[in-house]
Amino acid sequence: MNIKYEIIPNEKFEYCRDLCNELMVFQKSKAQIKPELFNSMNFDTRMIPSMKGALHNYIVVVRDEDKIVGYVYSNISPKATYSNNFATFFDLSSVTKDNVGCLSQFYLKEDYRGKGIGSVLFDMSMKWLNSFDDVEDYFIFVSNGNDNALKFYTGKEFVFSHKILDGFISVLRNKL
């Protein structure tokens, strides 16, 4: 393996299309609650609207030689963004500032998991999120059935807050 991390500008977010779609299939395969909700989730319905609604976006792709094998997408968004027709993701009054940080999407191809690559991506995202002085609250939303992701994030000092959509998503926060 010849792993390289590349921060990409918003204009190159298409680099993540195939992996984002793989992430949705992976999440559906793990889901025990409402897996059918993933039928309409893909790059066009998840990543594009998220990027458009965010104030700031941060994307890192992982390459093995020239092949993209993973990515992380984080953003800074107005807290009101997280109360919409789909769900209210957290109690807006629990966030004192106007904006929140979110580690929104995170995916590595299976052969690259358990090698420390995810920790590097996570650390890069947290460093970026922490660079915003006007943001104190960070969220990660984990789909049901993805126990490895829950374990990974709680090992990184995020704490379980609550479930939404009848358990479809677990909400994790940097603090309670």
Rank of each mutant, 00 (worst) to 15 (best):
K4P: 03
Y5C: 09
I7C: 13
P9Y: 10
E11M: 09
R17F: 01
D18T: 09
L19S: 06
L23C: 04
V25E: 15
S29G: 04
A31I: 06
K34V: 00
P35T: 01
L37Q: 15
F38D: 01
N39F: 00
D44A: 12
I48A: 02
I48Y: 03
P49E: 11
S50W: 02
M51L: 09
A54K: 04
H56Y: 08
H56L: 03
N57F: 08
Y58S: 11
I59L: 09
V60W: 04
V61M: 06
V62H: 02
R63N: 05
D64A: 10
D64L: 08
D66H: 02
K67M: 01
I68H: 00
I68D: 00
V69M: 05
Y73S: 07
N75Y: 08
I76A: 08
I76Y: 09
P78R: 13
A80K: 13
A80C: 06
A80E: 15
T81C: 03
F86G: 07
A87W: 06
D91C: 07
D98G: 00
V100W: 01
G101S: 02
C102G: 03
Q105H: 11
L108Y: 04
D111C: 03
K115Q: 12
G116W: 01
G118D: 06
S119T: 12
L121M: 13
F122L: 12
F122S: 08
M124V: 04
S125G: 09
S125C: 06
M126L: 14
M126Q: 12
M126V: 09
W128C: 05
N130I: 08
N130A: 07
V135T: 07
D137L: 01
D137M: 09
Y138H: 14
F141P: 06
S143W: 01
S143F: 00
S143L: 02
D147H: 11
F152G: 00
Y153L: 07
V159N: 10
V159R: 10
H162N: 13
H162L: 07
L165T: 01
G167L: 11
F168N: 08
I169Q: 11
I169R: 07
L172E: 04
K175L: 09
